[in-house]
Nucleic acid binder design. Structure first.
Ligand SMILES: [Mn+2]
Ligand SMILES: [Mn+2]
Ligand SMILES: [Mn+2]
Ligand SMILES: [Mn+2]
Lengths: 220, 220
DNA sequence: AAATTAAATTAGAGTTATCTAAAAAATAAA
DNA sequence: TTTATTTTTTAGATAACTCTAATTTAATTT
């Protein structure tokens, strides 16, 4: 059972939007994620249903199947391995990798991925802190919370970002936030949810709730 | 002006079959090369003509344009750089790279190729001995002749293979012929064109004309 | 519960790439 | 120079994927 590039992209979007099969996903959400029209999504859902990677009853909703999970995780694995390659080996910045990985993830060659994984020394996380599923689709995910949900005086470490857009990542570069940084919450503004943190025990950083929501923390 | 994956494959085939625009190419030849039907080729030729990468008059023939040359060489450059990557970095054997490179060559990202080239240390030849065009499409090709055209006692070095099929390459592996090997013609059989050579001053090798035709030599 | 609004699906059409079968043009043979 | 053969192109279908516009179903509001 092999999927087309378009099918892989849809399935990956469904996996992400459903948070690994937990949350329900709407046609409109998928359309927004893939940047396509709801009509196209309906059509594709029917096809994905026929291929049994989702369970689909029209107007009712969908559920990703175990098979769908497996295939989605395979594509995600490829995507993230390629991102590591681009950053570690080809000196890409973390805000430059997404689009290229979006293409590379569809290359069909089990041997290639196996070798790439070995070449990169079996990385466990991609440049945005997201876990890389192993060859069997197992993901060991760390418990992490969004920065905006932390309380004053709580400490932790930045382990991932929720938004991987170049705009957001370049903003983080500019203010000196990065994966691995140790942080402590100094103050929170009740009114708008903005937050002030201390980075690496030396730099004060003030950010909006919108930004904080997209920074994921492993609390100490 | 960007080409689809299919268009890139056709244009590359045309470039190769025409020997860089020198020889004339038939619809049937292209169909055989791409493993498609002549009817599909006719259709594609019309489209490539409209995009002005070839000059095409039906029933008459085609001529690759300077623009077409440039684009074909760009794809060939990508193909060969990826082959080097697979062999040098990922430990692929030279008979395992073609299919994967056939996919990778279509990844769209000028930055990626620039970085890959640098990472590989600006290689000049791919694992099969074929020259890698530079970013401007310039190819510095060495003068080389097919092994079957050499005379007795002539010496040279294997610099490339004409056939990159796994079957042929694995045969060469088996008998110990490889790119870079120094050879000398010991004997030629008039009757069937088969040939006996000395490899690296130590090993005698006997091969059919069919094999010798696909081994390219730089004479000393 | 009926009416309104929102979400999802279907209908119908366009694009790209492929195929088989039929027709046309060019080439080779008689 | 007709006739036969080969090559190439066109006609007509099919498969994937996408879109806009229309319709249907579900959810919300009065
Ligand atoms: Mn993708
Ligand atoms: Mn990522
Ligand atoms: Mn290709
Ligand atoms: Mn090659």
């Amino acid at each position: 059972m092999e999927l087309t590039t378009a099918e892989e992209n849809y399935l990956k979007a469904i996996y992400h939007l459903s948070d690994g099969g937990k949350k329900s996903v709407s046609t409109n959400d998928i359309a927004a994620e893939i940047r396509t029209k709801p009509a196209s999504v309906s059509d594709m859902l029917r096809k994905l249903g026929e291929k049994e990677v989702i369970q689909y009853r029209k107007y009712y909703g969908l559920q990703i199947t175990p098979l769908g999970m497996r295939l989605a995780l395979q594509t995600i694995r490829k995507h993230r391995l390629w991102e590591v390659f681009l950053v570690d080996k080809l000196q890409f910045a973390w805000d430059e990798v997404h689009e290229v990985a979006e293409q590379l993830e569809h290359i069909q060659s089990p041997l290639l991925i196996e070798r790439l994984d070995a070449y990169l020394n079996y990385p466990k996380f991609d440049p945005h802190g997201d876990p890389i599923p192993d060859a069997f689709g197992d993901v060991r995910s760390r418990p992490r919370i969004a920065l905006n949900e932390m309380g004053i005086d709580q400490s932790g470490q930045i382990v991932a970002v929720k938004d991987s857009s170049p705009e957001f990542l370049r903003y983080l570069d500019k203010v000196g936030a990065y994966i691995g940084a140790r942080i402590k919450v100094l103050d929170k503004v009740e009114f708008d949810g903005s937050i002030e943190i201390l980075v690496d025990q030396k730099k004060n950083l003030f950010m909006s709730k919108e930004v904080a929501k997209n920074i994921l923390i492993l609390t100490l």
